[in-house]
């Protein structure tokens, strides 16, 4: 439990650092690259604002957990519960297989409509396959 508390405190420090870095990097990035395209600047702004909101939410959540032992214990049990862990692993596995199959189907279908989209989807499939192989080899060596 104490280890978990320390882990949360460490996470809070990292999140606070992110909270400070994000606005600074966004403002400096916007002024250096001078994004004129509305879509790209809107995209960057959206990503930054949503990331900041998630960071602030997590900070508030961890702060309240660290100041309430009962809530912290409940959160600890939820986080370390082996069934929850098994559910999240199974969810990740099933959803990644579904996404892969759908991307392959979309890649084939877009071959008849737009070749650039089809190539981008094929690149996504190959990249996913390469990442899966790398991660698989990592865990093969680790376990």
């Amino acid at each position: 439990m104490e280890d978990f508390r320390k882990k949360l405190e460490r996470k809070m420090k990292i999140l606070a650092l992110i909270c400070c870095i994000f606005p600074v990097s966004f403002i400096s990035g916007m002024s250096i690259f001078k994004l004129k395209d509305d879509f790209s600047s809107g995209l960057v702004l959206g990503v930054c604002i949503s990331s900041m909101l998630v960071t602030v939410y997590c900070l508030a959540k961890y702060y309240s957990l660290l100041h309430n032992d009962e809530k912290l214990k409940k959160y600890y049990v939820e986080k370390t519960d082996e069934r929850n862990d098994a559910i999240s692993k199974e969810t990740m596995r099933t959803s990644s297989v579904i996404c892969l199959v759908l991307t392959i189907i979309a890649c084939i279908l877009f071959g008849f409509i737009n070749k650039y989209v089809s190539i981008a989807l094929a690149a996504d499939v190959y990249l996913s396959a390469i990442i899966t192989l790398i991660v698989h080899n990592y865990y093969k060596k680790k376990m």
Binding site: V77, E78, T80, E82, R83, N84
Partner: peptide, 11 residues
């Protein structure tokens, strides 16, 4: 039992 085993009641 869940509290004693450090798991959720759902488990």
């Amino acid at each position: 039992l869940a509290d004693a085993l450090c798991v959720t009641r759902q488990t």
